[in-house]
């Protein structure tokens, strides 16, 4: 049961008052225990980013292929398919992030819980608001521009929330991702409908996946760095 102390009888507790065999063993025990705790208590950024990256890569990719620049159709498919796939993948990503977050934070109370709750609510309020906003102006715009409005607003909300999240948790990777998404969004908007989808697919979706890889690399470095 206690695999780090071979001298402890299984289930016995008298020997658990025993000191670790050496200073080196103590330090190793500390390192192992801290890593194990962080692994289970911290939310894995890769799990939070990869499902969303895939959703954007595939979803916006399909938009580009079906509703290309200058009304081109690169790959023929039903009109409703890109949006349906995007929404489906976003829901899946949401479920995965949600479950990962709950499991990591289970039994943890205090400031983290408050921050997390407020942050989670920001997403909900932000996305609800953009839906109302886009719906309000939808009918006034030509089809292609309405599409651009619907495509760029969620990117805007996501970018702002990542920049804010980076500020709240002093996480430069998250902040950087938010800035990058903003730049991509603006570039896509200037390029126009059709091109915007491609930009978000590659720079947005790709950005998430690169950020996930960056977190993984950072996690591989020695504890405390």
């Amino acid at each position: 049961m206690n695999s780090t102390d071979p001298s402890a009888p299984a289930g016995g507790h008298a020997d658990e008052d025993a000191a670790p065999p050496s200073p080196a063993a103590s330090l190793q025990l500390i390192d192992e225990q801290k890593r194990a705790a962080h692994r289970r208590l911290d939310i894995d950024p890769a799990l939070m980013l990869v499902p969303w990256g895939v959703a954007w890569l595939v979803g916006y990719g399909l938009f580009f292929l079906r509703f290309g620049p200058d009304e081109r159709v690169y790959v023929s498919m039903p009109e409703w398919l890109p949006l349906t796939v995007l929404l489906g993948l976003l829901c899946l990503a949401g479920a995965i992030s949600g479950v990962a977050g709950v499991r990591a934070q289970h039994g943890v109370a205090g400031e983290s819980a408050e921050r997390g709750t407020m942050y989670g609510l920001s997403w909900m309020v932000g996305f609800s608001t953009f839906v109302v906003l886009a719906s309000r102006f939808d009918d006034l715009l030509p089809d292609r521009d309405a599409g651009l409005l619907w495509a760029s607003l969620p990117v805007l909300v996501t970018a702002i929330l990542y920049m804010s999240g980076g500020a709240v948790w002093r996480d430069r990777y998250q902040f950087g991702l938010g800035v990058w998404l903003s730049v991509a969004n603006v570039a896509g908007l200037l390029a126009g409908p059709g091109w915007h989808s491609l930009v978000i697919c590659l720079a947005g979706g790709g950005g998430f996946l690169i950020a996930a890889a960056a977190y993984r690399l950072r996690a591989g470095q020695p504890a405390g760095s």
């Binding site: 670790p20 025990l29 801290k34 943890v108």
Partner: peptide, 29 residues
């Protein structure tokens, strides 16, 4: 400087400032 208590303290040190851990979660960790 006792094996078991060292593990407890090392685990609790992984919490963020201002956070606390429920007993069952700590036990499971």
């Amino acid at each position: 400087h006792a094996q078991a208590r060292l593990r407890v303290v090392a685990t609790l040190s992984a919490l963020h400032d201002g956070d606390r851990l429920a007993f069952p979660r700590l036990q499971s960790l």
